[in-house]
C-alpha cells in the first residue's frame, strides 16, 4: 500500500497531465459527434455575454452593408406582394394562414466563424424565445445551419460549413435529391453528393432544400451549380455548389420552427 501511495506521489505531475489530457480528448471527441458538445459550448451567460457586448461594437462597422442586404430582401418581398395576382384585401381573413407549419423568429449572429473545419455560430436568442435543438436557421439569401445547444439567452448553430452536418437538398427544377456536405476547402462552396446519374444538370441551376427532414421547409435556396462530376462508381453525381450566402458577412438571420415537429417525431418513434 505504501508503495502504491509512493508511486502516486512520485508521478503526480505525470498522472495529472494524463488526466487533463484525457479530459480534453473526451471534450474533443464529443465535439466531433453531432449534438454532444454539452459542456464545452459558447451558449452560456459568460461567453455569450462577452460576445454580445463585443458584437454590439463590431456590428456598428458593417451597418451599411447589412442595411443594403435587408433592403434588398424588402424590395424582393414588396415585389412579390404587389405583383401577386390576387390583391390583398382589407378585412378578409385568410383562414389557411392559421394552419401554417413554420414559425419564424428573427435573430442576430453575435459570433461568426468560417475559417475552422467545424464552424459553430452563436445567436442572441435562446430558450427564453422558445428556441431549441434542431431548429433550422436561414438568412434572407439562403440556408445557414441548424441550432445545436441552447442556453436561456443564447444558442449555438452548426453552420453548413461544418464537417459534422449533412443537409438534404435537391434540384429546383426536378425532385432529384442528395445530401449537402462541406470539404473544408472554400467557405463559399459546398458539395452535394448522391444526385442520381439520370438527373438533368446544367451549370448555374439552383439547389434548394428538399423538405425531407423536419428541420427546413421545402424550397429554401442554397446555391447554384458550379461544376458537376460523376463519382468513382459512376452512379452518382458530386456537385460543387456556390452558396448564395456570403458566409463571411452575415448578421441578421431567421430561426425556423416546425410546429408539427412533436407529432412527426412521435410518429417516427412509434414505428
Amino acid at each position: 500500500m505504501q508503495q502504491i501511495i509512493n508511486f502516486f506521489l512520485r508521478n503526480k505531475t505525470f498522472l495529472l497531465y494524463l488526466f487533463l489530457l484525457f479530459l480534453s480528448l473526451v471534450f474533443t471527441i464529443q465535439s466531433h459527434s453531432y449534438h454532444k458538445s454539452r459542456f464545452i459550448n459558447s451558449a452560456n451567460f459568460l461567453t455569450g455575454g462577452i460576445y454580445n457586448s463585443a458584437n454590439n461594437i463590431q456590428s456598428f462597422f458593417n451597418l451599411k452593408s447589412q442595411n443594403e442586404l435587408l433592403q434588398e430582401e424588402n424590395n424582393y418581398l414588396k415585389s412579390l406582394l404587389y405583383n401577386s395576382s390576387g390583391k390583398p384585401q382589407e378585412g378578409f381573413i385568410d383562414s389557411t394562414r392559421f394552419s401554417s407549419n413554420y414559425k419564424f423568429t428573427p435573430a442576430r449572429i453575435i459570433k461568426n466563424s468560417y475559417a475552422s473545419t467545424n464552424n459553430v455560430l452563436l445567436l442572441n436568442k435562446g430558450k427564453n424565445d422558445s428556441i431549441s435543438q434542431d431548429f433550422g436557421v436561414i438568412t434572407s439569401k439562403g440556408i445557414l445551419g441548424i441550432v445545436d445547444e441552447t442556453s436561456n439567452k443564447y444558442a449555438t448553430v452548426i453552420s453548413v460549413l461544418n464537417t459534422n452536418i449533412k443537409i438534404s437538398a435537391q434540384l429546383k427544377n426536378t425532385n432529384h435529391f442528395g445530401s449537402l456536405e462541406w470539404d473544408t476547402k472554400n467557405p463559399n462552396r459546398v458539395q452535394l453528393h448522391e444526385i442520381s446519374k439520370i438527373a438533368p444538370l446544367k451549370k448555374g441551376d439552383t439547389i434548394v432544400t428538399s423538405g425531407r427532414s423536419i428541420i427546413f421547409p421545402k424550397g429554401i435556396p442554397i446555391g447554384t451549380i458550379e461544376t458537376f462530376n460523376l463519382d468513382s462508381a459512376e452512379n452518382f453525381y458530386t456537385i460543387e455548389v456556390n452558396l448564395f450566402n456570403d458566409m463571411t458577412n452575415i448578421e441578421h438571420v431567421y430561426i425556423i420552427e416546425n410546429t408539427d415537429r412533436k407529432e412527426i417525431n412521435n410518429l417516427l418513434n412509434n414505428e
Binding site: L16, Y17, S24, F27, T28, S37, I40, S116, L122
Partner: peptide, 29 residues
Amino acid sequence: IAFIFLSFLLGLSIDLFSDSGGVHAAASV
C-alpha cells in the same frame, strides 16, 4: 502541478469561446 492545471484552464477557456471541444486544452496542457 499548478502550472499544468493553469495551462489546462487557459486552453479550456479558449475552447469554451470558440466551440472547439477540447483541442486548445489538450495542446496547452
